[in-house]
Design a protein around this nucleic acid. Structure first.
Lengths: 397, 397
DNA sequence: TTGAGTATGTGCAACTGTCCTACAAATTAT
DNA sequence: ATAATTTGTAGGACAGTTGCACATACTCAA
């Protein structure tokens, strides 16, 4: 049973500071009087809260631009983006990216290093990430790095944040949180999340689904990953594996999936199958897919047929998800997002035909973020841990 | 965006009263000192809170039984079940049930009226329910009826709680909340919920999945309904239609479903299809199903074949749900629960074969509540609205 | 330029609710 | 009986918000 603990006076303060700071981070700078309207607090309290956030170094107040309305102008409260950052690390199969995002969501620095898609060891990959982090950390000297978010293409257990399975990397179960904490000599919070979950978070917070509280996100990289936003929050499930949409069965007569089952969504709309269906070498990677898209535009019939099959099975999988989750939108990222323009005309009717009337108008959108999605999501996850309690002891200094 | 409003001093009191009262309701009577340990509040505060709840008439303190331990005995705080009730109304296709449950979950009264399954009009059905409610209300004179929960086999829109679709009843879109409020002359809160959602709530709060925070509930009545408990709360989705598992596609070569799509789960494992597969008249209702189960036990081959098909398609549907939601358990209610003993031996391997390794051990359980599930869930929903804020103005008197 | 009108920030007392400390009360063990 | 232990209680301290009065900074119009 989830039990809410007893609240004391200070809980109020924490919660109210969190509310104000979260508003500034998510919705951007706003005047004090706007904050008063949004929260329902009094001017006195808001004055107190804002001055505490200023004292803590999170926000600065600025003179408002004259807006022609009568009355005393209310100062603009804005995030101190350059003084407060979180870092995002995303470990992908063929590259490693590191970002530094300021409070408010502004991207300050980013770096990515590519490498051959052949399997790369855990140690090497972490070393690569650590190097990039240190490089960026040098550039932002003076800013507080509040937390670090890590995105991995593997399953992350909810209870201890250990990565328990990374099929596309071949890594063993690992405590990435501790690993990065020690290798980076970082005493703030390190949070680890699944690639697709963080992609979902990114798109629903700052991407094409910004502001929507119910979103299905499906990302096609080497496999198919999924993330669900329900009531504005990530659906995690018992162990944090909820939303793993790659392994719902769609084609009972389909191919054998790595997971042991038959005809999983991942098997039918994964990169490998697409290339095979088009008669191309199945390990051509992203370049091969780009070629394929070009060929489809040029009218290559066997390629078009492959895309048709792709659209068909994707529609079947999406029908399940849309009927089941009742969302505001579906967002397709990675390979699936790239493919969407080429298959939308087939996908949409095939999907609609399988949807309940109430869900028939659910839009299918291409992701706004490309390769950066996980990094943005990792940063948002990191920010959440900071904004939840701006007073947390290790942030007082 | 979901924004938390500003908190004031009284918010603390509300929240703490809610925590204490909810604990007494969900986990039963407990000593004041146990409540102190659970909540982390001080003895002083707990004294204050309990005395306010006593003043409000929700709880009574009783002398504790001597337990042989040293120290001053701590009084037992227990729910005043006979003084505080909610009522549950469940509108089913072939019966209408009404219950009165005391605070703490104790069933005080219940009544059910059966009727032929032929379609029965909205007005008649409501009149029947009203009659039963009035009858029970007379029996519990003196107790406060805090709220009334209504379970319907239809889709209930989240924003306004209107019932928007009732395929098995043939009713038009209806504001059941207002309808019952006026017909019952009841000025408390009336809450309307979907049958399967409330079944899920019942089983996860007080049934076979009591205490589990992540549950898939599938109920087979005339159609197939589904409800998902995620993080201890009902998954509702944008409009409250999430978890409608009856309409996920499972058999692409299957039968045409009422919803327009092909091979929905409901079409493959609904009562009608089961009876047809067994070569029986498809409108035999529940008695026919009971006969069918008996025949299967006796070894009738055509019936066993029908059950095999049933198990197969149920496994396909459940595989999707289990892989997608990552739950502690699956609970089958209604027809599906009755069938479980007869098909478990086929269902379990067929399911396991399609599950991710991490989900392979998810248990499939038969519901603890039979026909009462929705009533219990409706009452829990009603209690939630009360316990969320024991100080709500209309409860002060 | 000045004064009225308006919206907003600020200081301070009042209020709410919890915490803390000391003490009283109720039980068991010696 | 008396000590030890645990729990309830009373009252002041503490934290945080509200509400009010007043100061402040702007627009508008004469």
């Amino acid at each position: 049973m989830n039990r809410s603990p007893g609240l004391r006076s200070e809980s109020i303060r924490r919660q109210n500071l969190s509310t104000v700071l979260t508003s500034v981070h998510r919705e951007g700078a706003s005047s004090r009087s706007d904050l008063v309207k949004r929260t329902g607090l009094t001017r006195s309290s808001m004055g107190d809260l804002v001055s505490e956030l200023t004292r803590l170094g999170f926000v600065v107040e600025a003179a408002p631009p004259p807006d022609g309305s009568p009355g005393r102008p209310s100062p603009i409260v804005q995030a101190d983006a350059s003084g407060n950052v979180v870092m995002g690390i995303d470990l992908m199969v063929d590259s490693v990216g590191v970002t530094a995002d300021g409070l408010g969501g502004q991207r300050l620095h980013s770096a990515r290093r590519y490498r051959p898609r052949s399997r790369v060891g855990l140690d090497e990959t972490v070393a690569m990430a650590v190097e990039l982090v240190d490089q960026i950390r040098a550039d932002i000297d003076g800013a507080r790095v509040h937390a670090i978010g890590v995105a991995v293409p593997g399953m992350v257990r909810r209870s201890d944040q250990r990565m328990v399975l990374a099929p596309n990397l071949g890594w063993p179960e690992t405590d990435l949180k501790q690993l990065f904490k020690s290798r980076l000599d970082f005493d703030g919070n390190v949070l680890v999340g699944n690639e697709a979950d963080l992609g979902a978070l990114a798109e629903s917070r700052r991407g094409v689904a910004a502001g929507l509280n119910h979103v299905i996100y499906l990302s096609g990289e080497v496999g198919i990953g999924g993330g669900i936003i329900a009531d504005g929050r990530l659906l995690r499930g018992r162990d944090g594996l909820a939303g793993e949409a790659g392994h719902i069965p769609v084609n009972l007569d389909g191919r054998q999936c790595r997971c042991g089952a038959i005809g999983c969504l991942e098997t039918e709309v994964g990169e490998e199958t697409l290339l095979q269906r088009a008669g191309l070498s199945s390990d051509g990677g992203r370049e091969a897919v780009d070629e394929l898209i070009t060929a489809a535009r040029a009218g290559d019939p066997s390629v078009q047929e492959a895309l048709s099959a792709h659209a068909h099975w994707l529609a079947v999988g999406l029908a399940t998800l849309v009927n089941l989750f009742d969302t505001d939108a579906v967002v397709l990222g990675g390979l699936l997002g790239d493919l969407l323009p080429s298959i939308a005309s087939e996908l949409e009717p095939a999907l609609k035909q399988r949807l309940l009337p109430a869900q028939a108008d659910t839009p299918v959108l291409a992701a706004a973020f490309g390769i950066d999605a996980c990094g943005v999501g990792a940063a948002e996850m990191a920010w959440d841990s900071v904004l939840d309690d701006p007073l947390r002891p290790d942030r007082q200094r």
